[in-house]
Computed example of a mutant assay.
Amino acid sequence: MNPTWNQQLIKKENKTIVLQLIIQYAPISRADIALKSGLNKGTVSTLVAELIDEQLILETGPGVSSGGRRPVMLVFNEHAGCTIGIDLGVNYILGILTDLQGNIIEKKRHTFIPTSFEQTLKQIHNDIQELMSKAPNTPYGIVGIGIGAPGIVDNNSSVVLAPNLGWKNSSIKEVIEEAFQIPVVIENEANAGAYGEKMFGLGKNIDNLVYISTGIGIGTGIIINEKLYRGSSGFSGEFGHITINMYGETCRCGNTGCWELYASEQYVIQKALELQLVTDDNANIEQIIELAENENEQAIAILKETAVHLGMGIVNIVHALNPQKIIVGNRLSGAKPWMEKTVQDYVKNRAMTSHQSEVKVLFSDPAFPATALGVAAFSVEHFLKRSLEKSIPTYE
């Protein structure tokens, strides 16, 4: 008798459970999978056999015996394929090639100042090609491409608005998919950064966190109850455009006095230019950090002032979301020695006592590619979902 649609759905769900348990608890035995999942041993054995045939999992050495024969242990086959993650910054592009567990095989980062949407697409295309050329031979090849964009990305992976890039309603997903014939995921870069920190960085084992991406602008990614919070249309996390100065400068978004105008890389550079610490030709955050390293008092003062402004917005986030941890990443994280304690002190002094019992504010490692890892992880998840769906036969 042919399986019914409900039976097919149940099998897919059970197979997903088995694979997730192997990914999470590897090395793990079939018996332990049955115990943790509540599935009977026969079902587990059948599903494990299918996953081995599909090269998504592997049998490894024997485990520890609990009284009988030593069990055969199972692990996720992280070398079954590769994925590419692109962090598209306003003034840089960072690309990584990873295996299916997020281990970085190749990394490429370079300064890039886009002049048009078409020019940016061409550069992304070239970077992807270069990363693909470094990929090892694997059963599934490049399983997906993820791109983190600094703007509002809807639930259909369309970049609705990226004011710091000058983009509006841009169809980057379709163009890249057509060029490489590989599934593409587009995500807001701060959302991707939050997920990258949650999976691989300072957010491990944290249920509720906020990631603040501090580049030319400010974006925030929110994790609630271990899940990325996107909002009803995918537009959550635009804290960079809360008003902290109602009489302030006009933002590229059209509003006045936005947080990102006073607590981002652009503010640091603007102040350094006003004080003639740098020139227009070489103005970047690395130059100001280098000046601070050489104990330039003006550069240090700019970074500390920026840290105070950063703390203002973080206090609002603490009061609004009450997270366990707030992680500051992207470009300003390189100024951690001069900014982190100032931010922490400001939050301690200004946030309500009731909200301070758990929250920790930390700066990420500037070399940690949180956004690129996050979109790469999204691509792997989409690949595994597609693989499990394909493995369930359809019946008339």
Score class of each variant (00 low, 15 high):
Thr46Asn: 10
Glu50Gln: 11
Ile176His: 05
Arg69Ala: 11
Ile172Thr: 10
Phe112Pro: 03
Glu59Ser: 11
Pro114Ser: 12
Glu178Tyr: 10
Val143Asn: 03
Val143His: 04
Pro150Ala: 07
Leu88Gly: 00
Pro62Thr: 10
Leu56Ser: 02
Tyr140Cys: 03
Asp87Tyr: 05
Thr83Gln: 07
Leu97Asp: 03
Lys134Cys: 10
Ile105Trp: 00
Lys41Arg: 14
Ile52Val: 09
Asn164Gly: 11
Leu51Val: 11
Ile182Ala: 06
Asp154Ile: 10
Leu161Trp: 12
Ser65Gln: 13
Ile128Asp: 08
Val90Met: 03
His110Trp: 10
Thr83His: 05
Asn137Trp: 06
Leu161Met: 12
Ile147Thr: 00
Arg109Val: 07
Val90Phe: 02
Lys41Pro: 08
Pro150Trp: 03
Leu51Thr: 12
Pro62Arg: 14
Pro150Lys: 10
Leu51Gln: 06
Asn126Trp: 12
Ile57Cys: 02
Glu118Gln: 15
Thr115Cys: 14
Pro150Asp: 08
Phe112Ile: 05
Gly63Arg: 14
Asn103Ile: 11
Asn137Met: 07
Lys173Thr: 00
His125Pro: 02
Ile172Glu: 07
Val44Thr: 08
Gly144Asn: 04
Tyr140Phe: 12
Gly95Ile: 13
Lys134Trp: 07
Gly102Thr: 01
Pro163Ser: 04
Leu161Pro: 14
Gly95Pro: 05
Ser157Tyr: 06
Pro114Trp: 06
Phe180Gly: 01
Asp53Cys: 06
Gly85Trp: 05
Lys107Asp: 08
Ser45Trp: 08
Ala80Arg: 03
Ser158Val: 07
Glu78His: 11
Asn91Met: 06
Val64Leu: 14
Gln129Tyr: 12
Pro71Leu: 10
Asp127Thr: 14
Ile93Asp: 02
Arg69Met: 09
Gly148His: 09
Thr60Met: 13
Gly89Trp: 02
Gln55Phe: 07
Phe117Gly: 15
Gln123Arg: 14
Leu97His: 08
Asp87Phe: 03
Ser66His: 14
Asp87Trp: 01
Gly89Ile: 00
Asn156Thr: 10
Phe76Asn: 03
Arg109Trp: 05
